[in-house]
Computed example of a mutant assay.
Amino acid sequence: MTTLLVAHGTRNPRGVAMIGDLAHAMSQRLRDEVRVGFVDVLGPDPAEAISGIRGTDPVRVVPAFLASGYHVHSDLPRYLHQTPRPTLLSAPLGPDAALADAMVARLLVAGWQPGDEVVMAAAGSRDLRAQGDVAAMGRLLSQRVGAPVRIGFVIPAVDGSGYPPVADVVAAARAQS
C-alpha cells in the first residue's frame, strides 16, 4: 500500500528537504513507496499527490503534524474528499511518547542537563484541539525531563488565544533563572 505523508509546506528548502528525508525513512521502514503532499504554501496538495499514484488500492495518509489542529481536521479531509481514491487516514504524529523521547535526545545533543529550563516551541494554533495536544506533548516532555516545561507558540494567534510567543516565554525563563 502506498503511503502519502502530508505536511504543512514551507518555502524554506531545509524544511522541504526534512520532509523528504522523513518520507525516505518511512519508505525504508515500511518497505513501501511513500509520497509527499502539502496542505499549504506549496504543492502538490494531497489530492494532486494521490492522483499521481498508480493503481486503485487505498492510500494510507499520514499527517506529519504534531497536533490535531485545523489542517488535520479541516484542510486534509477537504483534500481527501476531492479524490475518488479510497484513503486510510491515520492520526497525526503527536502527541506521542516517542516524540517526547526524541525531544529529550535532541535536548541532550544541544547540551541540556537536568535542572536546565526547557521551553517547548509549537507552531501555533487557535484550534482548541491543537492546543490540547500541545499541552499533552508538554506534559510528556515534562515527565521525561523531571521538571515543568514551558510552552510558547512560534506564531501566536493575533487574538491572544493559545500560548504566548516563544520569545516571551524564553525571556520569562531567563528572568527567573
Rank of each mutant, 00 (worst) to 15 (best):
M1P: 05
T2R: 10
T3S: 15
T3G: 05
V6T: 13
A7E: 03
G9W: 01
T10E: 02
N12V: 14
P13I: 10
V16L: 13
A17D: 14
A17S: 13
M18Y: 01
I19P: 01
I19N: 03
A23L: 08
H24I: 11
H24P: 00
A25F: 00
M26K: 11
R29A: 15
R29Q: 14
R29M: 05
R31H: 12
V34E: 02
V39S: 05
D40G: 07
V41Q: 05
P44D: 03
P44L: 06
P44S: 05
D45G: 05
D45C: 06
D45A: 04
E48N: 05
I50N: 01
I50D: 01
G52W: 04
I53Q: 06
G55I: 15
G55L: 05
D57Y: 00
P58Y: 04
V59F: 07
R60I: 14
V62T: 12
P63T: 09
P63V: 11
L66E: 02
G69Y: 02
H71S: 09
V72H: 06
H73P: 00
D75Q: 08
R78W: 10
H81T: 12
Q82V: 05
Q82H: 01
T83F: 00
P84A: 07
P84F: 08
R85W: 12
P86W: 03
T87L: 01
T87R: 09
L88R: 15
L89P: 11
L89W: 04
A91E: 14
A91V: 10
L93Q: 13
A97I: 12
A98G: 10
D101L: 04
V104I: 10
A105W: 00
R106S: 13
L107V: 13
V109Q: 11
V109Y: 01
A110R: 09
W112N: 10
W112Q: 11
W112K: 11
Q113D: 06
G115L: 01
G115H: 11
G115S: 09
D116T: 08
E117N: 08
E117A: 14
E117P: 07
V118R: 09
V119N: 02
A121L: 04
A122G: 10
A122Y: 06
A123Y: 09
A123Q: 03
G124H: 08
R129F: 02
R129Y: 02
Q131K: 10
V134D: 01
V134W: 02
A135D: 12
A136I: 11
M137Y: 06
G138C: 04
L140N: 09
L140F: 03
S142K: 10
S142N: 06
Q143E: 15
V145H: 12
A147Q: 15
P148K: 09
F153V: 10
F153Y: 14
I155S: 14
P156R: 11
P156W: 08
V158H: 12
D159E: 03
D159S: 08
P164T: 12
P165Q: 09
A167P: 00
V169F: 02
V170F: 02
V170Q: 06
A171T: 14
R174Y: 07
Q176G: 08
S177H: 13
S177R: 15
